[in-house]
């Protein structure tokens, strides 16, 4: 299990959080449709460090950026997300 250090609530069990998508896959409302398609569907899917958008769904409900290693599950940083 991951222990995710929410900047608002402190260290909490991963079961309180929900993964949403990688940070490079956030589609801006103003994007042209071709760019939105690429952003949504073309994923780097890295084996290694990845910046991800997580939701503290069963906690403070804040959106967070978690920098995480996809093979070791190490978490380098958790910061608030400001679109």
């Amino acid at each position: 299990m991951l222990l995710i250090d929410c900047p608002h609530c402190g260290p909490r069990a991963q079961s309180e959080f929900a993964y949403d998508r990688t940070l490079d896959a956030v589609v801006a409302l103003a994007m042209p449709s071709a760019e939105a398609m690429t952003t949504l569907y073309a994923r780097a899917n890295p084996r290694g460090w990845s910046d991800e958008l997580w939701h503290h769904r069963f906690g403070c409900r804040a959106w967070l950026v978690v920098r995480r290693h996809t093979a070791t599950h190490a978490i380098e940083s958790v910061t608030g997300y400001a679109p």
Partner: peptide, 13 residues
């Protein structure tokens, strides 16, 4: 597990 992972090691829950 519902988040990206290559660990080949899953969550106990």
């Amino acid at each position: 597990d519902q988040f990206p992972s290559y660990a080949q090691r899953g969550l106990p829950n």
